[in-house]
Amino acid sequence: MVSTPSNALGPTRARQGQAARTPTAWHACRALLRRDFVLAWRRRGELFLPLLYAVIVTALFPFALGPDPQLLGRIAGGVLLVIVVLAMLPALDSMFRSDLEDGTLEQWLLAPQPLALLALTRVIAHWLTTVLPLLVVMPLLGALLDLPAGVLPVLLVALLLATPLLALLGSVLSALAAGARRSGILLALMLLPLAVPVVIFAAGAIAAAQSGMPYLAPLAWLAAALAMAIVLAPLACAAALRIAVES
């Protein structure tokens, strides 16, 4: 490194050396994603818990309301939406907690990459590992509740927009609650006001599709909210993480 003062290789080496010292944001995010996937895979039993929860709750509805297909079909969209929101809750609590306890978050704060970007990466990993499986079994759950076949695509699109939005909002709350002694029901209490508009628009789209009305407007609102949340929620999440780490 020092022995080749100025030849053609010099600048390239220097750049490589620099790259090795401070990886680009892209490298950092990729490494973070890979780490989260490996961790999720090692605890893959836990990934099935939200799924199991959703299946159990869905199976209870016909027993409570009676197996009338018309009634079940009418409420299926809203019921599945609420089940997905509730199934997302327990996992939200653990989004940052273990990283705070083992000191990983302090490394995040010290990292040259912007904290908001790392937080966004964590939300993406979280969504892919805990929420995506729920969406994959949605057709099955829809069939259990006699959801009309034409409504299923709208339900899936609404969930594809609403669940990342909820995960982004939940990441802020999870970061806020990470430093607290206990959360759990507290997280549900904090999420409710934030989840109300999301649930309203997602359910609005599903209800509109079910009654044969135009359903694009609420979906567009959800998409707009998602675009805004992708920009703003990581910033709020970063601020919350700073509060959680600093004493």
Partner: peptide
């Protein structure tokens, strides 16, 4: 609830303020 969930009250106050 968030304010009272913290051991350190000043940290709880800052987190709850952000909320």
């Amino acid at each position: 609830g968030l304010y009272h969930a913290f051991e350190d009250r000043r940290r709880g106050a800052r987190a709850a303020s952000l909320l």
